[in-house]
Design a protein around this nucleic acid. Sequence first.
DNA 1: ATGAAAGCGCTAACAA
DNA 2: TTGTTAGCGCTTTCAT
Lengths: 360, 360
Amino acid sequence: MTSIARKAASDRAPTSSDDDASAGWSRVTARDIAEELGISISTVSRAFTENAVISPRTREKVMRTAERMGYQPNPFARSLITRRSKIAGIVVADITNPFYPEVLANLTKRLQDTGLQTMLFFAGPGRKVDDALPTLLQYSPDVAIVLAATMSSEMVSACREVGTPVVLFNRYVPGSGAAAVCCDNVDGGRQVADALANAHHRRLAYIAGSPDTSTNNDRLLGFTERCRELGLDDPIVEEGGSFTYEAGSAAVKRLLDRRNPPDAVFCANDIIAIGALDAARRELGLSVPKELSVIGFDDISMAAWPSYSLTTVRQPVNAMIEMTIDEARRLLAHPQAEAEEQTVPGRLIRRNSARLEEVS
Amino acid sequence: MTSIARKAASDRAPTSSDDDASAGWSRVTARDIAEELGISISTVSRAFTENAVISPRTREKVMRTAERMGYQPNPFARSLITRRSKIAGIVVADITNPFYPEVLANLTKRLQDTGLQTMLFFAGPGRKVDDALPTLLQYSPDVAIVLAATMSSEMVSACREVGTPVVLFNRYVPGSGAAAVCCDNVDGGRQVADALANAHHRRLAYIAGSPDTSTNNDRLLGFTERCRELGLDDPIVEEGGSFTYEAGSAAVKRLLDRRNPPDAVFCANDIIAIGALDAARRELGLSVPKELSVIGFDDISMAAWPSYSLTTVRQPVNAMIEMTIDEARRLLAHPQAEAEEQTVPGRLIRRNSARLEEVS
DNA sequence: ATGAAAGCGCTAACAA
DNA sequence: TTGTTAGCGCTTTCAT
């Protein structure tokens, strides 16, 4: 059967049966282009391969007919051979924090710029990251990027064993073998302590987010550490339980219900801070920042909204994304390279939710 | 060369050269399982194929060794033959509106429940949906889902021609051949007009979002339509220009700057409404809802925050997601079926940003 | 119920 | 510079 006959046969419309579940129409393949041009399939392939030995003229010819006939190489067939899928698997845990949609969007865009497409997986309540990974690994992505979540060291090893490096974004698991890109959360906590101390706040509090997350712990660590260095009392730590508005709102009420309430609260992230700020103002009738200073972490776009004007530690998202991509590419190029845990400093953005000294 | 030898050869660790760019280690294949068990590759395949003729005992045996050896079928090789990728391509345009991250998350989860993995593409400023589609189509997804964006009819046809049905979420393009799932935006607008009229508001305004979006136009259409039916003046239409906080904030200021300012504004979505509400309260010193009623659309989680307590039309997100999935499956099963444009009614959620009559 | 063989669409040696 | 050949890992007739 000639290929044209084959094509015609498969080109026929699906049967008229309403139950027809045919997968649709046949696509244009390299073979079609080859036949159209009277050249070999390999040559067509070469036209689409960078650095392949092929005369510019033939390549040009191939590209034009490909364009005309609507041919695009089949990435599945290709990756079967090249053993590179050109796919990045992204696992997202917490999409309710507005910080992450933006990261996801920009990360995906930048990945796409470097020729990697994104397969998306959600972890979250009832869906552990570890559970999502077998499915992810089926697609042998060239890299797995995990946003705001951790995974077991065993899973990281499993990934590397099948050749998929893992990059954690905004989390780290020391000794796991996973690369990690984080804002310097410890330093961020310290910056806040410094700023608050300078402005003569003396009763400091910290509203925690999800326990056992490196972001939460490190921000608190730096904050406490610096308070001690400055000879201040340890901050009161109020467990929020999660990185949510409600957590912040409830926690600040408990905090201000104490005999000796704080005059400044540092919150584990912006959403908590906004919840705290709203509750302080509207439910407790406090004036912010006059009676209470509130500081967050992340600098999500809401933080700049006039009604919040939240003082916060800005995470250098774009830099972090670039580092993530660089690390991914590095690990891809050198599979047995050591995974690096990298950190970028954040910067305190002074707005109007905290009474701070003017910076000179 | 025996396959064991082949395997051993490819199993060797990458060379020690630091420049080594090998793609990693070889994975377990069906062949490995077959050899381990002394059966044929076909049988291994059958064990993983639902409704395949295979004895329960063999299947069980295969599954166990697969588990033990860490074998999972390669979806690329599989889809090369089956001509089904088990992939859903999702195109997202506007991730800054908090409505969509949640949709994306839940949609992806539900898709995954039905056995479809998600490939993610971002459109947006400078990246038209139409531009993202060729890449998307390369992966021959079983369905393309477009969130909050439109595409050209030609592109829709191109998709269907290669067997990929398109489902638009929260947009529609009549006559394009794309299926669509929307909240009933016209009806939502009408509900708002009714509620406002009942509460004796007389000077109504609408703050528009992105022009030329069906969501924006239909909400306004229903609102205006119903105002006329009720014998009210046409609402003042203030162009916001986009579905953003800043747009809402700026628009409401212009609106209240008029000689004869409105006593109620209906906003094209919640983010606009929140921007309007903040500006009205904090920049113009108005009391909401006493001096101005503000109503939004979507019911994002922020709308319920105490400081906003936004009255809004709730989109039945989960229902819409189910409909999207159902439509996708239907189109998949019957490739030549007519694409349907479906609509679900929204519901007005009465909170405290609008002065409305009590409902009986 | 199972195996052998063909081939999905492509790339990568190897020849020519 | 190009064509030929041999698969990548899998599913699917067709025999058995």
